[in-house]
């Protein structure tokens, strides 16, 4: 198990991370960065920006059969599969967002849908006390069951 290439220390963690020292309201900066990122994600998936959802899915599967550690033996592949996973996730989310944008015209709703699937954003909203907003966005069954399962898991404990 330990043989799956251990990432080399700091390099990837620190990465080249755009430190956006803008205050809240720097939405433009964020959007710009996100768009640029999306282009990179398309490149990671080896498809043209603007490719259809079907094409992206197909490309992802092709890459999976090529680069997934289960099938890609030797461990010296140039592409790390978690990056492909990440890229696929981001591109698929962008499709979902644009679908939802089509459905809703309101500016407020627009902002919601842009970020609602980003886990970090959910957290940020929680810290900002926007729980009420999150509550509205989630389907009711999710909340109810979630509480339930949390209780269960917490209690069970483990050893």
């Amino acid at each position: 198990m330990a043989s799956m290439g251990a990432p080399s220390g700091v390099g990837f963690c620190a990465g080249k991370r755009p430190v956006l020292k803008t205050k809240r309201g720097g939405g433009n900066v964020r959007c710009a960065a996100a768009t640029k990122n999306l282009m990179e994600q398309y490149r990671t998936l080896k498809v043209q920006p603007g490719a259809s959802e079907q094409e992206v899915k197909k490309a992802f599967r092709r890459l999976a059969l090529q680069y997934h550690p289960d099938v890609c033996k030797g461990g010296n592949s140039s592409v790390e599969f978690h990056q492909i996973n990440e890229a696929y996730h981001m591109v698929m989310n962008s499709f979902r967002r644009s679908k939802e944008q089509d459905r809703s015209d309101g500016v407020g709703a627009d902002e919601l849908t842009t970020e609602m699937y980003d886990p970090n954003w959910d957290l940020w909203e929680e810290w900002m006390g926007k729980d009420a907003m999150m509550t509205l966005m989630l389907p009711p069954c999710v909340r109810v069951v979630d509480n339930q399962s949390n209780r269960g898991k917490g209690r069970e404990g483990s050893y």
Partner: peptide, 13 residues
């Protein structure tokens, strides 16, 4: 503690 999302890395390499 956590820091705001704007300051989080946009993409992790």
């Amino acid at each position: 503690t956590t820091i705001p999302k704007e300051l989080q890395p946009q993409k992790v390499q």
